[in-house]
């Protein structure tokens, strides 16, 4: 075996990782920024699942949200605008032992990285992708994103945006091999945590959109949902942790969803005025490209030599 030996094991059983093990420098997001809540939920998940920090890699693109890996005490890769997914795929394809997470902004995933997003769904590799959807470009100071609602004034659309926003949930649900699609809002930490937990436990590619407040540029945009809990439609499913009593007392619009039903998932995703929160769709047994392409065996130096000599023989001209 050459290069990195992923079968090399270290005995972690003696160690217990606490929340601090997953923390790094203090986040530099604006106060009130929804990215903070996502960070907290993910750090909690890592602690609860006792993921060895060196075995987790958080790959991100560029944007406010893509600063995420810097604040994790794990490995991280803060890459290029739009390119987080293929970089994460490169990691996962050759290092199945690593737990791979991807953090993207809405522009990152659904504008500049659109091709990779569509194909990542189809590859269905084992990783968890989180889109921090603040419906705006934060980092570059308030330009329209593909998910900005119609009519919103931004620095590039002083007369308001011209088009209906892109619905990343229904779009994702239309791609072959889709195996996990969920929606969360960062201001309901209980559901956010539960959604991310199920996404992490899912076999295959889990796509989680998290609606994220950007108080700096769009302070009121999610008010209809914040002011009216009935506009939030909580999806429960048989496998999920039951809702807490306090959650039940605020959110009354609860729908029992069968995550195996893609048509229902598509319908839920297409609703106007009401936002589904929870797991829309989950399929088991969808082939994962990273598993299909896994090296079948460890290659010894002898095997390597033989494989090469076989090819040289094919092209051989012997001395004479």
């Amino acid at each position: 075996m050459f290069g990195v030996n992923e079968t090399q094991t270290v005995d972690y059983s003696q160690e217990y990782y606490s929340l601090e093990d997953y923390q790094s420098s203090t986040p530099r997001w604006c106060s009130g920024c929804g990215d903070n809540a996502i960070l907290t939920a993910v750090q909690r998940l890592c602690r609860d699942e006792q993921i060895p920090p060196e075995k987790a890699v958080f790959v991100s693109g560029i944007g406010c949200s893509s600063r995420f890996p810097h604040y994790m005490g794990t490995y991280g890769f803060h890459s290029l605008h739009g390119r987080a997914l293929p970089i994460a795929q490169g990691v996962k394809l050759r290092r199945p032992d690593l737990k791979v997470f991807v953090n993207m902004g809405d522009g990152d995933c659904c504008s500049i990285g659109t091709a990779h997003w569509i194909h990542a769904i189809r590859y269905n590799m084992n990783m968890t992708a989180i889109v921090h959807d603040n419906e705006i470009y934060g980092m570059t100071k308030k330009q329209a994103s593909p998910t900005t609602p119609m009519g919103i004034v931004t620095n590039t659309t002083p007369k308001g945006t011209y088009m209906e926003p892109l619905n990343m949930l229904s779009a994702t649900l239309g791609i072959s091999n889709v195996s996990f699609v969920a929606n969360a809002v960062e201001w309901i930490p209980e559901v956010l945590y539960e959604v991310i937990r199920q996404a992490y436990l899912h076999q295959g590619f889990s796509f989680v959109r998290v609606v994220q407040r950007c108080p700096h540029f769009l302070p009121n945009i999610f008010d209809p949902f914040l002011r009216n809990p009935d506009a939030i439609q909580i999806l429960t499913n048989p496998g999920a942790t039951p809702m807490s009593d306090s959650l039940k007392s605020v959110y009354k619009n609860v729908v029992e969803n069968n995550p195996a039903d893609i048509n229902q998932a598509r319908e839920l995703s297409m609703q106007k005025d009401v936002m589904p929160v929870g797991i829309l769709y989950q399929a088991t047994g969808v082939p994962c490209y990273d598993e299909l392409r896994r090296a079948p065996r460890v290659v010894s130096m002898e095997m390597r030599k033989k494989a090469l000599e076989d090819q040289f023989n094919r092209f051989a001209v012997n001395a004479g």
Binding site: G3, V4, V57, V59, F77, S79, L80, R83, L85, P86, I87, A88, Q89, G90, V91, K92, L93, R94, R95, L98, H116
Partner: peptide
């Protein structure tokens, strides 16, 4: 990007 990801991972 895939090549870079793989190389980064060793």
């Amino acid at each position: 990007a895939v090549a870079i990801g793989s190389s980064y991972a060793g």
